[in-house]
Simulated scan of single mutants.
Amino acid sequence: MPATSTLAKIHIAKKQLAMDDDTYRQMLESVAGVRSAKDLTPIGAAKVLRHLEKSGFKNARQHGRRPAAAGADRQKLLGKIEALLAEAKRPWSYADAMAARMFQIDKLDWCDADQLWRITAALQKDANRHGR
């Protein structure tokens, strides 16, 4: 049986790709020869994950996790930061590194609205510089 985290990723991918139960089970059977994820071997689970990624599943760990947004101002700023990072094909860890470099704060989550605004401005200047 595959690790619990692998099974969780498979179920997250199923939800992200909006697969109904019949389609999901047919995919499991065609890719790994089983009708239920609990019957997957570790190798079968890896095959299924690869297939789901080829089908469009975006693993959150590839780009990191969006920071928590408490308040409308923070939410708008984080949305703009997310858009600028996506446009530049950069992960959330890039913004964390900016916070560390600019404010000596390890995580973007811990920045206040003014600091988030300054990070947004820096990302926008970078986008303008690179013609995005």
Rank of each mutant, 00 (worst) to 15 (best):
31 V>G: 01
31 V>H: 02
32 A>I: 07
33 G>M: 08
33 G>P: 13
35 R>W: 11
36 S>V: 08
36 S>E: 15
37 A>H: 07
37 A>R: 10
39 D>E: 15
39 D>H: 05
39 D>N: 14
40 L>S: 02
40 L>N: 00
41 T>H: 04
42 P>V: 07
42 P>F: 10
42 P>N: 01
42 P>T: 09
44 G>N: 00
44 G>R: 12
45 A>Y: 04
45 A>D: 04
45 A>C: 08
48 V>D: 06
49 L>V: 03
50 R>F: 15
50 R>Q: 15
50 R>V: 12
51 H>K: 03
52 L>F: 10
52 L>M: 09
53 E>F: 12
54 K>I: 15
54 K>Q: 12
57 F>H: 05
57 F>L: 10
57 F>M: 04
57 F>T: 04
58 K>L: 11
58 K>I: 13
59 N>A: 10
60 A>G: 15
60 A>S: 09
62 Q>A: 14
63 H>R: 08
65 R>Y: 07
65 R>I: 15
65 R>N: 11
65 R>T: 06
66 R>V: 07
67 P>M: 12
67 P>F: 03
68 A>T: 07
69 A>I: 00
69 A>C: 15
69 A>F: 08
70 A>W: 12
70 A>T: 13
70 A>G: 08
71 G>W: 02
72 A>T: 10
73 D>R: 14
73 D>F: 12
73 D>E: 13
73 D>L: 13
75 Q>V: 12
76 K>H: 08
77 L>F: 07
77 L>N: 07
78 L>A: 01
78 L>N: 00
79 G>V: 11
79 G>N: 10
84 L>Y: 00
84 L>T: 01
86 A>D: 02
86 A>K: 00
88 A>M: 11
